[in-house]
């Protein structure tokens, strides 16, 4: 870690339909090689925050800077920035008409302009890494939820992103498949991947998080290192929330 921010979020506001104030002045950052875990009750704005980081949602005001590029500036080439940001969704969102291999190679060819051979080589390595090399030629419908999510992680990793965003990657999974996905994420964290993870998997947070943010009602209520966070949170609301999800 060299102290420079890959993600720098400054005073971001986001309102939906003029009434739903999803983000009310959020500031946060993720340093290179750092793992930031975001927790908070449902509807607190976690997904919206992640989506603002890769421009899937436009901020109303405030600034998001990714590795030096202000993506909230008016003339930014958002496609170019997004190629540098991987995101893994709760619902996987694999392309159902493509095999696992094709899911991972598509953007490499279309966006990164890699040759078919090169893209497939990268893909096979990644599928090996996420533990499903034998599923390369299967369609998403032929894979379990855990396998699909691992393909989705490989698909994002194939772009060599500067940061990986995860939006509750295990909450749509059957319990017995959660570990296989978390293991892959832990490996990434150990390798020094910069990560911003929305998750209530406290085992993962303890093992991988450098810092934890607790959000409520569109604001960051508390932020701290993972040990401080679990052992001695400052705020009553944080304590209440933790006691709920820890048991």
């Amino acid at each position: 870690m060299n102290g420079e921010s890959v993600v720098q979020i400054t005073n971001v506001h986001k309102t939906f339909d003029n009434v739903v104030r999803a983000l009310r002045g959020v500031s946060a950052h993720v340093l290179r090689g750092e793992v930031l875990v975001v927790i908070g009750p449902s509807g607190s704005g976690k997904s919206t925050l992640l989506r603002c980081v890769n421009g899937l949602e436009k901020v109303d005001s405030g600034q998001v800077v990714i590795d030096g590029t202000d993506i909230t500036a008016p003339k930014v080439n958002i496609n170019k920035v997004r190629a540098e940001i991987g995101i893994v969704f709760q619902q996987f969102n694999l392309f159902p008409h493509l095999t696992a291999l094709e899911n991972v190679t598509l953007a490499q060819k279309v966006v990164r302009k890699r040759s078919k051979e090169e893209a497939e080589e990268v893909t096979r390595e990644l599928l090996e890494k996420v533990g499903i090399p034998e599923k390369a030629d299967n369609y998403p419908s032929q894979l379990s939820g855990g396998q699909q999510q691992r393909v989705a992680i490989a698909r994002a990793m194939a772009m060599n992103p500067k940061v990986m965003l995860f939006d509750e990657p295990t909450s749509a999974l059957d319990p017995e498949m959660i570990a296989e996905v978390l293991d892959v994420m832990l490996d990434l964290a150990k390798e020094g991947m910069t990560m911003m993870v929305v998750s209530h998997e406290m085992g993962f947070a303890r093992a991988a998080a450098d810092r934890i943010i607790f959000m409520d009602e569109g604001r960051i209520v508390e932020e701290g290192t993972s040990s401080k966070f679990f052992e001695n949170p400052d705020h009553q609301r944080t304590k209440k929330f933790l006691s709920k999800i820890l048991h």
Partner: peptide, 16 residues
């Protein structure tokens, strides 16, 4: 909608 979002977040343009 998730299909378009997944494709766009990989850096593809709308038309790609």
């Amino acid at each position: 909608r998730g299909q378009m979002e997944a494709a766009r977040s990989l850096g593809m343009s709308y038309w790609q």
